[in-house]
Simulated assay, not measured.
Amino acid sequence: MEHPEDVSIVRLDGGQVPEFDWAAGPFASLTRTPDETSIVCLTAAVPAGVRTEGPFRVVEVAGPLSFGSVGVVAEVVEPLVDADISVLAFSTFDTDWVLVPAGQTDEAATAWRRAGLIITPTSLTGGSS
Rank of each mutant, 00 (worst) to 15 (best):
R51D: 15
G49C: 10
A111F: 00
P79Y: 05
E5D: 10
G127K: 08
D106A: 15
V61C: 09
P4Y: 01
D21S: 14
I39L: 14
S91Q: 10
V61F: 05
T31G: 12
T110S: 13
I85D: 00
G126A: 08
E60K: 14
F90S: 08
A28C: 12
F27I: 13
L42K: 06
V61H: 08
Q16L: 13
V58M: 12
R114F: 06
A115S: 09
L42T: 01
E75L: 13
L42H: 11
A23P: 04
R32L: 13
F20H: 12
I118W: 02
S69A: 15
T33Y: 01
D82R: 14
L124D: 02
L99N: 00
V81H: 11
G54T: 03
R114T: 14
V73F: 09
T43M: 06
F56D: 04
T95Y: 00
V100C: 06
D84A: 13
I119D: 12
I9K: 00
V58C: 13
V17I: 15
D13M: 10
A62F: 07
D35A: 14
A44I: 11
V72N: 01
E2H: 12
D35W: 05
R11L: 09
I85C: 00
A109F: 04
G63A: 09
G49P: 09
V17N: 10
L99A: 02
V72F: 00
F90A: 09
C41Q: 05
S123D: 11
P18M: 06
C41W: 05
